[in-house]
């Protein structure tokens, strides 16, 4: 049985593409056959995050318009042979594909793959509707910021209206130091405000920037964010994994300096 997951957020720049790349990579590491679909037509990005930008011949629009077969457009990952990317078209726009065509594409891929991940564009227009059309479940990515959470709330409302089977939250870019000193909402606060199930939280991590520079997602690496992504993947496949402590424990020194500051 294959599962189709859309990764969405409403707001741009919160880490949808990075999350797609890392969750896809993590599921491949766990041994599943995975395809990542970049549905952001006109603003192609997943290919560079995966480091596969030089291997593109055909794209999503070519497949939908029948210029090639699906298999011709799928790019095999550099490191994991059971991971594939269907890149987006860079020189077309969102209207080149319809929700009906996306549904058909996804259902054609179901027989071949265990997991089909759809990287959704920002916004709530055509691109969002395309990406959501064929999905069984949705991951809503947000950061602990007012604007991102507000958009996430709107997206959750729209997904509920579309009768999305399952909606899970990913809280991205958590700065433990800022949460500790009360200058950032905690993961618990965000979950509480959005009242939706959380599948994982990712710490803000320099290694993510480095990984993106190199075009190699860091899921499976020793870095904190790499572990957090792997935890999400384990939860997707049904394992019960305890949440990483991103609130940060208060050390003696920190507590003392906190007291001094307050005094």
């Amino acid at each position: 049985m294959s599962e189709v997951i859309v990764i969405t957020s409403g707001k741009g720049g919160v880490g949808k593409t990075t999350t797609s790349a890392n969750v896809g990579t993590g599921l491949a590491i766990l041994g599943y056959k995975v395809v990542l679909i970049d549905t952001d037509i006109g603003l192609r990005n997943l290919d560079v995050v995966m480091g596969l930008e030089n291997r593109i011949v055909y794209n999503l629009v070519d497949v939908v318009e029948g210029n090639c077969r699906i298999k011709q457009a799928l790019i095999k990952d550099k490191r994991y042979p059971n991971l594939y990317l269907l890149p987006s078209a860079q020189t077309r726009d969102k209207s080149a594909v319809s929700p009906g065509q996306m549904k058909k594409l996804v259902s054609d891929l179901r027989g071949e793959f265990d997991y089909i991940l759809l990287d959704c564009p920002a916004g709530i227009e055509r691109g969002f509707k395309n990406a959501v059309a064929g999905a069984d479940r949705a991951f809503v990515v947000t950061t602990p910021e007012v604007s991102a959470i507000r958009d996430a709330d709107r997206i959750i409302g729209l997904l509920e209206a579309e009768d999305m089977g399952e909606i899970d939250l990913i809280v991205n870019r958590v700065r433990m130091d800022m949460v500790r000193r009360g200058d950032m909402m905690s993961v618990g606060d965000v979950v509480d405000i959005l009242s939706v199930n959380m599948i994982g939280a990712i710490p803000d991590d320099e290694d993510i920037v480095i990984a993106t520079n190199q075009g190699e997602p860091l899921a499976g690496s020793d870095s904190l964010s790499g572990q957090a992504y792997m935890n999400i993947c384990r939860r997707i496949v049904g394992e019960s994994v305890p949440f990483m402590n991103l609130e940060g424990s208060r050390g003696l020194l920190r507590r003392l300096s906190g007291l001094l500051k307050r005094a």
């Binding site: 007012v146 800022m178 949460v179 000193r181 009360g182 200058d183 950032m184 909402m185 606060d189 405000i193």
Partner: peptide
């Protein structure tokens, strides 16, 4: 201080 609370 506590801009997190304000954000909430």
């Amino acid at each position: 201080r506590n801009s997190g609370e304000l954000a909430k």
